[in-house]
Design a protein around this nucleic acid. Structure first.
Lengths: 103, 103
DNA sequence: TTATTTTTGCCAAGTTACGTCAAGACAAGT
DNA sequence: ACTTGTCTTGACGTAACTTGGCAAAAATAA
């Protein structure tokens, strides 16, 4: 991906010169697990993402976007018509937003 | 969604006047499970989707698209910035396709 | 070398998703 | 009303997947 969630938090962490150990402690997991999150071997939980955003002083919405994008990517990357699938979902979401906006 | 996977296969099945029992047998699951798939309570496996496409005489790619879209939708529907997430993934996919196309 | 950080493999525990069973709703026919 | 067939739902056991921790190995620095 252009920038995976793991890449992003690693870049931020390195920019701040924080060891994994410290973030791992904040997330109450051990460093091995934290390491795997950066390497995309494990997935952070949603709550952990917001904690990381705080510690890394970055907009949590941005991190959530990356984190969600990773999940979506995993689902459709292997499909032939990935782009068309995304368009279908986008349409659905727009329609649904219209409905709820009116209601 | 505008048209979920479940809606689609149900419409096709009804158009052909086939009972759930028959498709369930083809998928080697019982009718309760098949029913849940139509109702979006259980998810079909990828192989099952192609089997259904055959039996319902519809392009399997179309069914796979709907099936994938359902999965993606489940992931991001609850997120605030769902559309932006989709855009991020779309970008990533395009970039990746460029790379592989050149290679 | 020594110390620190990062990474990996493996296993136990936890979580999620699946499929079946049993029971019930509903409609059409007798 | 009784049957027959289809569809639906909830509960339950279990299979499959995911997670986190531990221990030990690489990598990196001091």
């Amino acid at each position: 991906m252009s920038k995976t969630f793991g890449n992003k938090i690693r870049a931020l962490r390195e920019g701040k010169q924080i060891p994994q150990r410290q973030l791992a402690a904040a997330l109450e997991i051990d460093t091995a697990t934290y390491c795997k999150i950066e390497k995309r071997d494990r997935r952070a939980k949603r709550e952990q993402v917001t904690v990381l955003a705080d510690l890394l002083e970055v907009d949590s919405k941005e991190l959530i976007r990356l984190w969600s994008a990773d999940k979506v990517y995993d689902i459709i990357a292997e499909e032939e018509e990935a782009t068309q699938i995304l368009n279908m979902v986008a349409e659905t979401i727009l329609k649904y937003q219209d409905k709820t906006a009116k209601a």
